[in-house]
Structure formats: structure tokens, C-alpha cells
């Protein structure tokens, strides 16, 4: 007791560290899930920080508009060309849709069990981001009121983003796929018969392997989800960066650059 009185600062520091270490151990062992206290804090922080996020977004957009005038003009020209191309693609797609309709009618006549893949999405803004610069975990401004719950898949225009790890009213935390740890079944976009599995490698990219060692996978191939497991089919995962043959495992191993640029995410969609 005398030592504690004489060394108040050190005693306080040690007590604080013991308490924090206990919290850490409990959180690690029990798994960090939602409870009343964390939900309450998340609701409050999301509400207040959402204001700061919108202010920051306005500042960035305003500044970008001032300094990027020439870039914007160039982008407009590029978008005009892209628009013309898309118009042509649309016409072709309409023709293909008519053909598909005819094939579906034929499938109905032949009693072929055809189940079209449809899902609803809720779009959301990224309101908060983990500031550690390591983990790409972020929070979105939509939550349980829109049907977003734990385990829902999150995408953006570029491809697969991650999975909802926790959700409350007006917020949902998203764990990106590069950190998620779970394995993703994929197929090559150019050949849907060539399948494989990838997972985040804790270095900001994916590593994985092809199921068939005779696969023709090569650098630059685009991978999309195969539909097996929790992720719907056809969502872009990334581009193959390198291919090596592992003679011990008799497998073609690949490293994959994610399609999504996590550091600049602003809008996402949640599949519900």
C-alpha cells in the first residue's frame, strides 16, 4: 500500500493496463459482437460523425472541382465516347434479351428448371472509415431498418467489397473481403468452367489456386464469383497478377489484385 501511495502514476498505469488487457482478452475470446452498449455508442458516433463526413465530402468535391477543370473536360469527352458505345451496346443487348426471352419460353415448354438470379440491393454511403490505415473496415449509413444484417454481401461498381460484420439502426460495419479471411470460390470471367478458390493474404491482395491443374489461367485474367457459397455469381473479384505452378501440391497458384480500390470507396450497395 505504501508503494502504491508513493508511486501513484505507475500504480494507476498498471491498473489501467490490467483493465484494458482484461477487456481485450474478453473481447478476443467471446468474439466482438453487438450488445446494448456497443450498439448505443455506435448509434451516437455514427450520427455525429455522419455530419463531419458530409462536410468532408463537400470540401473534397469542391476542391476537386476547382483544381481538376482540365481533367473534367477530358473526362466529359471520354464519357461522351463511352455513352455512344453504350448506346450501341444497349441496342445489341435488347436484341439478345429478345432471344433470351424466346429461350426461356422454350425452357418452359420443355419443363426445364430455370431459376433466374435476382436480388435486391440497398445503396449506401461510406460514412466512417477505420483510421488505422491498416484495416479497410468501414461503416455505411444504412442499417437494420433497410434489411441490412450481419453476413450480407457488399459490392460497388468495380466488384466485390466485403461482408456486413455488424449492423444497427442507421449504420452497418463492413469487413472487406481482403481481410475477411473466408475463402471465395471463383471462376474465370472468360471461361466459367475454370474454377478456383482465393482468400485475402493479409497484404492487401488475394492468393489462391485453380481447382484444375490443367487450367489455362494467365496474368490479366478477370475472376468473378462462381455462385458457390455466400457470394452471388458473377461479381468481379479482381485481376490475376501472377501464376505459379506448385509441383508439391500439383496446383496452379495465383495472386490476385482486388478489383475494388478500398481506400477511395464512397458508395456501395448491399445485397439483401
Amino acid at each position: 500500500m505504501r508503494w502504491i501511495r508513493e508511486h501513484k502514476l505507475i500504480a494507476s498505469l498498471l491498473s489501467l493496463l490490467v483493465v484494458l488487457a482484461l477487456i481485450f482478452v474478453l473481447s478476443t475470446v467471446s468474439g466482438f459482437g453487438g450488445n446494448f452498449l456497443t450498439d448505443f455508442i455506435n448509434n451516437g458516433v455514427s450520427g455525429i460523425s455522419g455530419f463531419f463526413s458530409s462536410v468532408g465530402g463537400n470540401i473534397r468535391d469542391g476542391a476537386a472541382g476547382i483544381f481538376a477543370h482540365k481533367d473534367l473536360e477530358k473526362q466529359i469527352d471520354e464519357l461522351k465516347d463511352e455513352n455512344a458505345q453504350l448506346q450501341r451496346d444497349l441496342i445489341r443487348a435488347k436484341l439478345e434479351a429478345e432471344q433470351l426471352q424466346q429461350l426461356q419460353e422454350l425452357a418452359g415448354i420443355l419443363h426445364y428448371d430455370y431459376t433466374p438470379q435476382t436480388f435486391n440491393v440497398v445503396s449506401a454511403d461510406v460514412s466512417l472509415k477505420d483510421g488505422s490505415n491498416w484495416l479497410e473496415t468501414f461503416t455505411i449509413d444504412r442499417g437494420t431498418e433497410d434489411g441490412i444484417t450481419q453476413g450480407k454481401v457488399v459490392i460497388d461498381g468495380a466488384g466485390l467489397v466485403g461482408v456486413v460484420s455488424d449492423a444497427g439502426e442507421g449504420w452497418a460495419k463492413v469487413a472487406p473481403i481482403i481481410e475477411e479471411g473466408s475463402k471465395i470460390s471463383f471462376k474465370l470471367a472468360r471461361d466459367g468452367k475454370q474454377l478456383g478458390v482465393v482468400a485475402g493474404d493479409s497484404k492487401g491482395q488475394f492468393t489462391g489456386y485453380m481447382l484444375d491443374d490443367g487450367s489455362t489461367v494467365s496474368e490479366g485474367d478477370i475472376l468473378v464469383t462462381s455462385g458457390m457459397g455466400m457470394y452471388p455469381a458473377g461479381i468481379e473479384i479482381g485481376t490475376v497478377k501472377s501464376v505459379t505452378y506448385n509441383s508439391d501440391k500439383l496446383l496452379k497458384e495465383i495472386t490476385v489484385e482486388p478489383a475494388v480500390k478500398f481506400s477511395s470507396l464512397r458508395k456501395v450497395a448491399v445485397i439483401i
Binding site: 481485450f24 466482438f32 456497443t38 469487413a175
Partner: peptide, 30 residues
Amino acid sequence: PYGLVWGAVFGLLYDICFGVVIGPTPIALV
């Protein structure tokens, strides 16, 4: 000890809101 006290408090809040587990940020800050 402002840094120590507030580091613990806000580090804890930070992990509750954004962390995968609670504890690393406040312990590292303290």
C-alpha cells in the same frame, strides 16, 4: 497525464466503433 487518460478512453471508444476486437488501440495508446 492527459495523454494517458484520454488515450485510454478514446482508444476504447475507437475500438468499440471501428475495431475488429476491443483493446489493441487503448493499450497501444496507453
